[in-house]
C-alpha cells in the first residue's frame, strides 16, 4: 500500500479524533470523564507530532498530559459538585457569545492558514531532529532551558504558598502575624 496514503489516513483519524474529543470535554456530564476526553485529545495531537518528526516532543506531551489529567481527575473529585456525572450537567454562561467567539476564531485562523504562502521547507529526513534538539537544549539555548526550570521552581513555591492551609505564623488567608517572643507559645498549636 502507498506509504503517503497510510500517513494521510492516520493523520485524519488522529486530527478528527483530537478535535471531536476536545469538543466532548465540554459536552460530557462527568467531570472525570471530561479529563479523560481531554487526555484523548492530547494523545491525538501527540501522535500527529510523532508523525511530524518531532518524536521526542510528541511522546513527552502524552506522558506529561497523562500525569496532569490524573491530577485533574483527583481535583475534580475533591472539590467539584457532581464529579461522577450522575446528574446531567450543562454549566455554562454567555453561551451564545462563546459559540460566536469560537466560530469567529476558527474562521479567522483558517483563512490565515489557507491564504498565507508559507515557505515549503520540510524537515530533512536524514537529520535526527531529536539529537539536534538535545544539542540545542544544552548548547545555544541553554539559557532558555534554565529559565524554564527556574520558572517551574518559582511555580512550585507559589503553588505551595497558595494552597497550604497554614503558613508558619498563622493561617494562610489572614496574612502573616508577628512571631511570638515566647518560645513555648510559638511551639503550642
Amino acid at each position: 500500500m502507498n506509504r503517503s496514503l497510510v500517513v494521510d489516513v492516520l493523520f485524519w483519524c488522529f486530527a478528527a479524533g483530537s478535535v471531536v474529543t476536545g469538543y466532548l470535554v465540554f459536552r460530557t456530564d462527568s467531570m472525570v470523564r471530561a479529563a479523560f476526553w481531554l487526555l484523548a485529545s492530547f494523545v491525538g495531537v501527540g501522535a500527529i507530532l510523532v508523525m511530524l518528526a518531532a518524536e521526542f516532543l510528541g511522546v513527552v506531551l502524552i506522558l506529561m498530559m497523562a500525569g496532569e489529567m490524573l491530577i485533574m481527575a483527583v481535583v475534580m473529585v475533591m472539590f467539584m459538585m457532581n464529579p461522577a456525572g450522575l446528574n446531567p450537567m450543562f454549566m455554562v454562561h454567555q453561551h451564545r457569545f462563546a459559540v460566536a467567539a469560537g466560530v469567529v476564531s476558527f474562521a479567522g485562523l483558517s483563512v490565515v492558514a489557507l491564504t498565507v504562502e508559507f515557505p515549503d521547507q520540510p524537515v530533512d529526513p536524514a537529520v535526527d531532529a531529536t539529537a539536534e534538539l538535545g544539542f540545542e537544549l544544552l548548547g545555544d539555548s541553554m539559557l532558555v532551558f534554565q529559565t524554564a526550570g527556574v520558572a517551574l521552581l518559582a511555580t512550585m513555591i507559589g503553588a505551595i504558598a497558595l494552597a497550604s492551609r497554614n503558613g508558619r505564623f498563622g493561617t494562610a488567608d489572614e496574612g502573616s502575624q508577628e512571631p511570638a517572643l515566647d518560645i513555648e507559645e510559638l511551639e503550642s498549636p
Binding site: 485529545s41 500527529i48 462563546a98 469560537g102 476558527f106 492558514a113
Partner: peptide, 20 residues
C-alpha cells in the same frame, strides 16, 4: 495541519469563555 490546530484552538476558546 493549521486548520486542525485552528479547530482545537476554537473549541478551547469556546470552553474557556463558556464554562462556569
Amino acid at each position: 495541519l493549521l486548520v486542525v490546530a485552528a479547530a482545537l484552538f476554537a473549541v478551547g476558546l469556546y470552553g474557556a469563555i463558556s464554562q462556569q
